[in-house]
Design a binder for these strands. Structure first.
Lengths: 158, 158
DNA sequence: CTTCATGCAAAACATTTGCAGCTGG
DNA sequence: CCAGCTGCAAATGTTTTGCATGAAG
């Protein structure tokens, strides 16, 4: 698992404890219960620097709370997605990945070899969104920008 | 089915007959056989202005060639994807959609109500790609840029 | 207490695969 | 001919769902 990524990215993350509090408040505000299982999932999401899959979340949650089922993990991330506290990155084939740190659309760079996912700096995206609105008449609510390629480490190994 | 989209998009499409020939040559060049089933799938892809799903392709292919199985459709689009003659647009949940007219990455605008997909004009994407390369050290091979929102028609109906 | 959450197992999907038989070149 | 393709059905892998039991508030 390659979560180390670059320092510049990790530096920008919200402090895990604060992020956890934010997610907890979001649950409370919407009158959802805070169960041990949910708490465990939130903790993983708050602490993860990367973009864990449901399966990954599940196995990590089980360390803390061994009886947690995969279904509960799915129910929890779906709930969090609905209240805007998690970003779901769906890929056609493999399983989805989740980002609990930046639950709003942002670009990704994905290594097709080791599956590491990074969050690069890009601006000019809201402008692009506006441009699309103007040209197509769509009301743009959301977007997704992913780049696929080979990360420096995997390129070295070639 | 809302394939009419905007004139400016459809005007840019390659003529279906030419596109079909291109796909056929690609198959021949790679020593793949041209079977009636494959021909039927190619025809649908060449003629479609939109972004049909495997299921849609299948039901349209069956009109011409009733015994064609869904598995063959999948095998064919997968083959075409591998030789770069079709772009697969995978969505986490629902089924993938395929574009046989512009088999290279390009932005999409997707209506979350009627599921119409349009191809807007955007430049500045290759620049963006280069910027990412420079900043992350990734070798960028591919990308995906999708905007989600509500199309003018669906907005009127509200 | 009562409503909502959990966990299991089963269902629901889209997609892939194994394989016997068929067919394009 | 015969390697490669088809079509069926079964397998796969992820995500969802129904429902009885359990726990949060």
């Amino acid at each position: 698992m390659f979560d180390a990524a670059s320092l510049s990215e990790s530096e920008k993350r919200t402090d895990p404890k604060i992020r956890l509090e934010q997610m907890l408040s979001a649950l409370r505000k919407n009158d959802f219960r805070i169960t041990p299982q949910r708490l465990a999932v939130l903790k993983i999401l708050a602490v993860s620097k990367g973009h864990p899959s449901a399966e990954e979340i599940h196995s990590r949650v089980k360390e803390d709370f061994p009886t947690t089922s995969l279904a509960t993990v799915y129910k929890t991330v779906t709930l969090l997605r609905e209240i805007g506290e998690v970003l779901e990155l769906g890929f056609g084939h493999e399983s989805s990945r989740y980002d609990g740190n930046k639950p709003y659309p942002h670009p990704h760079v994905i290594c097709i070899r080791c599956h590491r996912i990074m969050d690069p700096e890009i601006d000019a995206l809201t402008e692009m969104s506006d441009e699309i609105s103007r040209k197509t008449g769509f009301e743009i609510l959301n977007h997704r920008l992913d780049f696929f390629g080979i990360c420096p480490e995997c390129r070295e190994k070639e």
